[in-house]
Each structure stands twice: as C-alpha cells, then as structure tokens.
Simulated scan of single mutants.
Amino acid sequence: MQSPSFPELSGKRAIVTGGATGIGRAIATALSRQSIQVAICDINLAAAEQAAAEIGNGATAYAIDVRKRASVEATFSEVVERTGGYEILCANAGVSTMQHALE
C-alpha cells in the first residue's frame, strides 16, 4: 500500500453509508488508502461484507437502512461499540423516488 497523502488522517475511523457499491465504495476505498479504518454501512450487508473484505485494511461491514432512524441509531451505536468511535462521517447513502415534476 502506498503512503497516505494525508498522514494526519492515519489511524482515524470513518463511517461510510452506502459504502458497498458505487460512489460510496470509491469513498471507502480512498479513505482506506489513507490508513483510515472504514466502517462500510449499507442496506445490503452481503455487499458490504464483500467490499470490506476486498478493501481490507481493517474495513468492517454493517447493515443499515438510512430510511429508518432506529436502524441508523443502532448501526452507529454498534460501530462505536466495536471500534471506539469515529471521526469522519460520509453520509453517502440516499433514497430517491421518481415522480413527475407536478407531483
């Protein structure tokens, strides 16, 4: 692994919601390359586990449904309990619905 470009971030902990695929996965990968311990949180736990395994570097996987406050609170509590906390939050997961402009 290359040396981090931002050594002051080395050893920090991050939560990335929607981190199993797409932009979230790219964020998680980039953070991990900076020696940041990444908690990959996603509605698809199997995909989060696969991403964590492939990213390595201490990445962990958690199930989360950002549409439900109880899920967010429970997942963040679990991350804090297992890792001791977090300094970085990337709230990448989102929910959208497609409707006509007048609706």
Results as ranks from 00 to 15, higher is better:
residue 100 H to A: 14
residue 48 A to C: 07
residue 57 N to H: 13
residue 53 A to I: 06
residue 65 D to W: 13
residue 78 E to H: 09
residue 89 L to K: 05
residue 5 S to E: 04
residue 92 N to M: 01
residue 74 A to M: 01
residue 62 Y to C: 10
residue 9 L to R: 05
residue 58 G to M: 07
residue 97 T to H: 12
residue 40 I to V: 13
residue 6 F to H: 08
residue 32 S to Q: 05
residue 18 G to I: 05
residue 35 S to P: 00
residue 41 C to P: 00
residue 73 E to A: 15
residue 67 R to C: 12
residue 63 A to G: 09
residue 76 F to H: 10
residue 43 I to V: 14
residue 24 G to T: 07
residue 19 G to C: 01
residue 65 D to F: 11
residue 103 E to S: 10
residue 71 S to A: 14
residue 10 S to Y: 01
residue 87 E to T: 09
residue 46 A to D: 15
residue 34 Q to F: 05
residue 88 I to P: 01
residue 101 A to G: 06
residue 59 A to N: 10
residue 95 V to R: 07
residue 94 G to N: 12
residue 17 T to K: 13
residue 2 Q to R: 11
residue 5 S to F: 03
residue 6 F to Q: 02
residue 93 A to F: 00
residue 39 A to Q: 07
residue 2 Q to P: 03
residue 25 R to W: 02
residue 83 T to Q: 11
residue 97 T to V: 04
residue 24 G to A: 07
residue 61 A to K: 05
residue 54 E to F: 10
residue 83 T to W: 09
residue 73 E to V: 15
residue 68 K to F: 04
residue 24 G to N: 05
residue 4 P to G: 13
residue 63 A to I: 02
residue 58 G to S: 11
residue 50 Q to L: 12
residue 3 S to H: 06
residue 54 E to N: 14
residue 23 I to F: 05
residue 101 A to N: 05
residue 27 I to H: 07
residue 97 T to L: 08
residue 11 G to Y: 08
residue 32 S to N: 10
residue 31 L to C: 06
residue 98 M to P: 00
residue 44 N to R: 13
residue 82 R to H: 03
residue 74 A to E: 13
residue 57 N to S: 11
residue 62 Y to E: 12
residue 33 R to D: 12
residue 101 A to W: 06
residue 22 G to A: 14
residue 17 T to S: 14
residue 43 I to M: 10
residue 74 A to R: 14
residue 78 E to V: 00
residue 80 V to A: 07
residue 90 C to A: 15
residue 58 G to I: 14
residue 8 E to I: 04
residue 7 P to V: 03
residue 47 A to E: 08
residue 35 S to F: 01
residue 12 K to F: 02
residue 1 M to T: 08
residue 37 Q to E: 09
residue 82 R to Y: 00
residue 33 R to V: 01
residue 102 L to I: 08
residue 31 L to Y: 08
residue 76 F to S: 05
residue 45 L to A: 11
residue 72 V to K: 14
residue 34 Q to V: 06
residue 62 Y to P: 00
residue 97 T to N: 03
residue 76 F to T: 15
residue 84 G to T: 12
residue 1 M to A: 09
residue 1 M to E: 03
residue 33 R to E: 12
residue 71 S to W: 14
residue 94 G to H: 12
residue 91 A to C: 13
residue 42 D to Y: 05
residue 80 V to N: 02
residue 14 A to E: 06
residue 96 S to P: 00
residue 99 Q to Y: 10
residue 73 E to P: 06
residue 15 I to P: 01
residue 102 L to Y: 07
residue 22 G to L: 13
residue 50 Q to R: 15
residue 69 R to S: 09
residue 3 S to F: 02
residue 26 A to R: 12
